[in-house]
Design a protein around this nucleic acid. Sequence first.
RNA 1: GCAGCAAGUUGCCUUAUCGCCCGGCAUGCAAGUGCAGGGAGGAAAGUCCGGGCAACACAGAGCAUCGUACUUCCUAACGGGAAGGGCUGCUGAUGUAACAGUCAGCAGUACAGAAAGUGCCACAGAAAACAAACUACCCUGACUUGUCGGGGAAAAGGUGAAAAGGUGAGGUAAGAGCUCACCGGUUCUGCAGCGAUGCAGGGCGCAUGGUAAACCUUACGAGUUGUAAAAUCAAAUAGGUCACGCUCCUGAAAGGGAUUCUGCUGCUCGCAGGAAUUUCAGCGUGAUGGGUAGAUCGCUUGACCCUGAUGGUGACAUCCGGGCUAGAUAAAUGGUAAGGUAUCCCGAUGUAAAAGUCGGGAGGAACAGAACCCGGCUUACAGACUUGCUACUUUU
RNA 2: GGUCCCGUGGCCGAGCGGCUAGGCAGAGCUCUGCAAAAGCUUCCACAGCGGUUCGAAUCCGCUCGGGACCU
Length: 120
Amino acid sequence: MRFVKKERLNNEILIKELFERGSSFYLFPFKVHLLNNPDPEFPFHQVMFSVSKRNFKKAVDRNLLKRRMREAFRLNKNMLPASRKLLIAYIYTAKEILTFTQIQERLVKTLNRFDHVEKV
RNA sequence: GCAGCAAGUUGCCUUAUCGCCCGGCAUGCAAGUGCAGGGAGGAAAGUCCGGGCAACACAGAGCAUCGUACUUCCUAACGGGAAGGGCUGCUGAUGUAACAGUCAGCAGUACAGAAAGUGCCACAGAAAACAAACUACCCUGACUUGUCGGGGAAAAGGUGAAAAGGUGAGGUAAGAGCUCACCGGUUCUGCAGCGAUGCAGGGCGCAUGGUAAACCUUACGAGUUGUAAAAUCAAAUAGGUCACGCUCCUGAAAGGGAUUCUGCUGCUCGCAGGAAUUUCAGCGUGAUGGGUAGAUCGCUUGACCCUGAUGGUGACAUCCGGGCUAGAUAAAUGGUAAGGUAUCCCGAUGUAAAAGUCGGGAGGAACAGAACCCGGCUUACAGACUUGCUACUUUU
RNA sequence: GGUCCCGUGGCCGAGCGGCUAGGCAGAGCUCUGCAAAAGCUUCCACAGCGGUUCGAAUCCGCUCGGGACCU
């Protein structure tokens, strides 16, 4: 399953919109922000991954965690709802580096919860 | 053989599979798809220096500010590097009564000027810088004979981080570079060296302690800002400018001569109010410049890398041949599975003890991620390999 | 990406070459029937390493940590 550049959330206006008006929930080790894409014609879900510099000083560690999150999302993104297109932000809140299997297991749980989150 | 130190090189590998970024070729109107390639470091880090490149600024000189500071060389440049010199420390030899001194080796060194000027030097000490004189010393006067006064001198004591050249001899009332020898210092001349400086000889009894990573002086250097710079294209919205329109509708100012309408009064004159007219604003339509989001470019062929030759003590330079080696932008190198190396643990074997060998297990390995590009410096770094030096052990 | 500033007991905070002030907090004592307040005593510090200097929290260099600003 491919994960191309257009599925990445990189527009500053949309990001601002997501954090100001989107709904969010915590599920260790993530904080997840969620919003319907204002442009309903857009063909993809868009997602971004973030790791705080405050928790991980070294760029190597931040890169590693973002890679693991991105890979876990890529392998499980078919679980996303097809009816609506979402803007998603994953923020890594744990203080230590988890293994890929742990991250994948938790990320699947967040995907399952998307259906229960009310439309905003 | 083993241990330590220094310098240099390297810094996980293989296979399968699913993916990410880049450009190339093919195909397609396009979205895309397919094929074969490439894809982090020695420090990519810290941002401590220097340069390229870019925009802006800029007559010349001086002052101010900031930086650098033994010499020569290397370099695009540097606060970097190379070679050399001085100084300091340690070790050994020599030397001495003991120091000092001399020679050799190793290590360190932000190492211009303190005799241009100013400041500071706590405590202790008599005194901390034009010298002075507490104790003690020498000469001498007085008397109450162990005190007081006058003079000499700066060697000894103690204090301190530092006390006004050091050692020895002569000299003297006691002393003192007061005089002499050696050492040190300073200055002049000669020789050697591109130079820092060194060596030799002569003069000066030696007159001014430290601190410039205190102010300062001298010499040299420095325009400012940074690739998120700069350049090109360019939505939406607001506003700027220009043109046209305003039949109807709105506001302000001018105008009210003529014409026309209404009112005062039926007419004329007169007066008042409006319309018409002009200008500005407003509204509508179109054009246009700046320029935001966004896109492109800057962007990777360069003081580049590799092999070799030549010159140079060396940093480095020149030349022949070959190579193209990341370009992301909410930011590309990852996930999974299997195996193997390095390391660690356990057991067996082996041995004087190790090493080695076999089996099983742990573990997936150090520091660390390009962001315009180079040259350095600094800091982090498990393990492996090479070379040199030192110490120990064994054998010849 | 670039630029600048700060670091002193548990906390706040002065000190700019010569023994690290002061306040709050903690501990003990006095006072009180007990406590509070007050008074006295005490405990605990210059981020780290190296250099300059007789002497460094202070001056210089490097490192670590924290913060601010520009775009």
